[in-house]
């Protein structure tokens, strides 16, 4: 073995002339659009005007403060954070119900998934908002919460949920978004649970595990590893879908961007900037998830 020579290098993949031609075509296309916008469209670009809506200098307090767009981005991040947690919880329970023995629970979860998946998100949001959020919230007394009380108006609450005065509004948007995304997560969880080989269930039953222990100790840990990639994709979709919540006046990034675009008439700059913000946020999440997956993959490799 020791006398064998080291391996010769394998051929490297290089960009060919055809690849460069392809790049050239793409660049040409982009150039064409830019030229059209500059030459044909009479538009007065004014980036500083829009940047002013990200953050502005408060003369009274003598410091920089977040303006509309940054506030909107923060609300979107809050929506994404709580929405992810809530959607994951609902999706986990519903996904488990989809696969459990009880017919009643299977009917409930199946109905939930089919209802939401077969209605356009926009329509669902309107129905939810007008019939549920504006009826149920007052009924359980959410509207009468004193937003000035120190229990609500404190730093921790502001960091977690934003302006207390807008809390019910934020909450209805959050629940709406979570319910919507959870239907898709339900199906991912169901597929994950069903992907665990039958032998694992049988072995767990054969040593006399209770149904709860079987799920918690055997099935969920193995399912979770399989569903991590599609789950990550769904969470990123959740961030992007949060833009629709703007239609029920939740003051997140898209809602405030509409206002900025309307009041400044700097439509192009606003939406390009907002697009960049969404891209940065989603790409960051994708990056974090990819790292998590690699970590999970490392420990899984040890097992297989």
């Amino acid at each position: 073995m020791d006398s064998r020579p080291p391996p010769p290098p394998l051929p490297k993949r290089r960009l060919t002339a055809l690849d460069w031609l392809l790049f050239g075509l793409v660049a040409l296309g982009i150039g064409l659009v830019v030229w059209r916008v500059n030459a044909v469209l009479v538009y007065d670009w004014n980036w500083p005007r829009v940047f002013g809506f990200v953050a502005r200098f408060d003369e009274e307090r003598g410091q920089w403060v977040a303006n509309l767009l940054l506030q909107g981005l923060l609300t979107t991040i809050r929506l994404a954070f709580w929405g992810t947690i809530l959607a994951a919880l609902i999706g986990l329970v519903m996904g488990w119900w989809r696969t459990c023995d009880s017919l009643a629970l299977r009917i409930i979860s199946r109905t939930y998934v089919e209802l939401i998946r077969n209605i356009p998100p926009l329509v669902f949001i309107f129905i939810f908002y007008f019939f549920i959020a504006s009826q149920i919230f007052p009924a359980i007394g959410l509207e009468t919460i004193n937003t000035k009380s120190p229990w609500v108006d404190n730093t921790a609450f502001r960091i977690a949920f934003g302006d207390p005065a807008l809390f019910t509004n934020f909450l209805s948007g959050l629940i709406c978004l979570a319910l919507f995304e959870a239907a898709y997560i339900t199906e991912i969880v169901r597929a994950g649970i069903q992907s665990v080989p039958k032998g694992q269930w049988e072995a767990g039953r054969a040593i006399g595990l209770s149904p709860t222990s079987l799920l918690r100790d055997i099935i969920f840990p193995q399912a979770l590893r399989k569903i991590l990639p599609p789950l990550a994709g769904q969470f990123i979709t959740l961030i992007k879908d949060s833009a629709i919540i703007s239609l029920i006046s939740v003051q997140e990034l898209t809602f405030l961007a509409t206002e900025v675009a309307a009041s400044t008439t700097k439509v192009f700059e606003t939406w390009i900037l907002v697009g960049g913000m969404y891209f940065a946020l989603c790409y960051l999440f994708a990056f974090i998830f990819a790292r998590l997956e690699r970590r999970a993959g490392r420990s899984a490799r040890q097992e297989t």
Binding site: G199, Q200, A203, R205, A206, G208, P221, Q222, E303
Partner: peptide, 29 residues
């Protein structure tokens, strides 16, 4: 479950819990 705890079973395809070490496979029950 009570009855199953008195009846051990060995399968053709082993069916060890894939995400657990050998020791954890044994101690879980």
């Amino acid at each position: 479950e009570k009855i199953r705890r008195e009846v051990g079973m060995v399968f053709q395809s082993f069916n060890l819990f894939a995400h657990m070490s050998v020791l954890d496979n044994l101690t879980l029950g």
